[in-house]
Amino acid sequence: MSLLEVENLRTHFISRDIDNQIRVAKALNDVSFRLEAGKVLGFVGETGAGKSLTAQSICGLLRPPARIVGGSVLFDGQDLIEMPQEELNALRGDQIAMVVQNPRTSLDPLTRIGDQLVRIHQAHTGGPVTASRGRALDMMQAVGIPDPANRSNAWPHELSGGMAQRVLIAMALMNNPKLLIADEPTTGLDVTVQAQILDLMKGLTERFGMAMIIITHDLGIVAHYSDEIAVMFAGTIVESGPVREVFAKPDHPYTRSLIASTPEKLQIGGGAKLGGQPPDLYNLPSGCPLRTRCTFAEDVCATPPTRKQIGGGHYSVCHFSGALPEGGGPQ
C-alpha cells in the first residue's frame, strides 16, 4: 500500500454569478496518482492547471465555492475525504505538513518564532512544554538556522525571506510528518538561496524518511529534486512517471512542449510553440483539453483519451500515446 493514493479526484468551483446563473469550473478532473513513503513527487504545470488545488483538496483546505465532487484520497489507509473535519484538522500539521510560497505571510506576526514552533507541537503532540521547546531548537538546528536559542526569540518581521522559509520548514517538521507538501517553496527567493532551501528539504526527506510533494512551475527543480513527476494541464495529470524516464522520453505533447520551452532546450526563432491560452475551466473543450492547442490533434481527440502505461510507472493520457514521433516536439 502506498502512503498516499489519490483516485479520480474531482474538485469543482460551483458559484452563482451576478446574473443568478450557476457556473461550474471543472478545476480538477479525475486526478489519480500514488506516492510511496520516502519518495519525492514533483507537480508541474502552468498557472491554473490545478497543482495547488490538488494539494488543498488532499488537505481539506478548500474553501467555498471550491468543492470536492468525486474521488478518493487515501492517506496511510484512511480516506481523507470521508474523514470528519476535526480528525482531518488533527492530521494536518501533524502527519501531513505544508510549506507554502510567501513564507512571511504564513507566520503569525505577533508571536515569536520559537513560540510558534512550540505551539504547533503542543497542539498536536502535547507533552511537557519544555520538551516542545527542546524539539523546536532541534528543528531550527536541522533547518540550518544559526544560533537557534537566540533566534527563537525573533519576531517574524525580523527574518529575511530565506530565513522565514526555514522557520516554516522547521514548523512543518515539528510533529515528524509522514508527508510534506511544498507549494512553490522557493518562488520569490533568490536563486542562490533557492539552492540552499531545496538542498535542505531534500536532505530532510532522506533523514526523516518523509514523503514530499513539490509543487512548482520550474522544471529544473523537479528534474533535480524529485523522484517522480506529474505534469498537469487543465485539471488533469496528462503524464506521470519516474523523472529520468519522463525527461528522456516525454510522451504527451504538452510535456514535450514544456520541456522544449525550458531555456536549455529553447531554440529562439524555432517557430510556433505550444502556447496559446490556458483553456477556460468553465467551458472545457470536449475530449482532450489540449486539443485546441495541440498540433497533433485529430478528430479522435474530441473523445476523452484514456490513461495508458508506456513504461515502468510511466503513464500518459493521449490518444496517440507511444505512437508520436520520437523526440519530436510540437515545435
Binding site: 452563482r16 454569478d17 451576478i18 446574473d19 443568478n20 446563473q21
Partner: peptide, 16 residues
C-alpha cells in the same frame, strides 16, 4: 454570458 436577461441580472443583484 450566454442568455443575458435583465430579469436574471436583477435576481442576481437581489441575491448578492
Amino acid at each position: 454570458e450566454p442568455g443575458f436577461s435583465l430579469k436574471n441580472r436583477l435576481i442576481g443583484i437581489a441575491r448578492v
